[in-house]
Design a protein around this nucleic acid. Structure first.
Lengths: 134, 134
DNA sequence: TCATTATATCACTATGCGGTTGTATAACAA
DNA sequence: TTGTTATACAACCGCATAGTGATATAATGA
């Protein structure tokens, strides 16, 4: 087990770059409970249907019906997804008469998607390089 | 449908804060295909077992056996998770004799976890406030 | 050659969950 | 009151996948 730390130190002295961010991370403790909470939230975003709803909400707040129309999904389905997104505070809601207006709770979702999109772009670039042979 | 944009404009003139980040986001197009790619990656992180592996790799590169020991999971299970993480380029690997050394491909995972942890902290703060009655 | 060790893969089970249908609830209108 | 509409919820089905045990592959040493 200490073997790993030895290898890591060696790596630091070699060419492989270890970012300073990773070093700060090294200090943080990730308990199994926290991992569970984090995973729960990633899982919520790991579903195209829910990303589609969040994406639709970028245009502003919307009723369930509007989201049903936007996404082409069934009403019960959209409603269920919204419950989960609301429970995890990805969206906020207000009721007005018969309608319930949903909106994005904050923009952290897009910080997350930005990072992911960056990864995807980077991947395709690297794979393109491989295909190109250099 | 234009109703939503009207409501959004009204919201901008009211108290609800719309971040500038969200406005820039408004321009980006999220095709269903891209949503699928993003969701696939979020889904990969939406599993405590895989987060545990990534978390373990923060201490430096490790062999499969070491990760099995670290996480307490079965060998076949760890190996399978590593395949997925490697396919999506969350981890890198190099082979040396009988051993395969896995390491973090980059630190974007922790950017992502940071945002999520921030959300969790914020949530518990807000819920605490509610419990505290103010 | 054969044995051993580390990793990957296959086959299987069980569980979780996305989607759908039908229904309940709530708010409003007549 | 009754009817209508928007949303939430319950029950169900089917599929994806996490985990496990057995086996295959590959590298090393005797």
């Amino acid at each position: 087990m200490t073997q790993r730390l030895v290898r890591r130190t060696e790596a630091l002295h070699n060419r492989r770059i270890q970012t300073s961010s990773q070093d700060t991370m090294l200090k943080k403790t990730m308990t199994p409970e926290l991992l569970e909470l984090v995973a729960e939230r990633f899982k919520a975003l790991g579903e195209p249907a829910r990303l589609a709803i969040l994406n639709s909400l970028r245009r502003g707040e919307a009723t369930v019906s509007e989201l049903v129309e936007d996404t082409g999904m069934g009403q019960a389905n959209v409603s269920k997804h919204l419950q989960l997104l609301y429970t995890l505070r990805f969206v906020a809601r207000r009721k007005e008469g018969l309608f319930v207006y949903y909106s994005l709770a904050d923009d952290s979702v897009f910080q997350l998607c930005d990072v992911m999109c960056g990864r995807i772009a980077q991947d395709s670039r690297e794979r393109g390089r491989i295909v190109a042979g250099r």
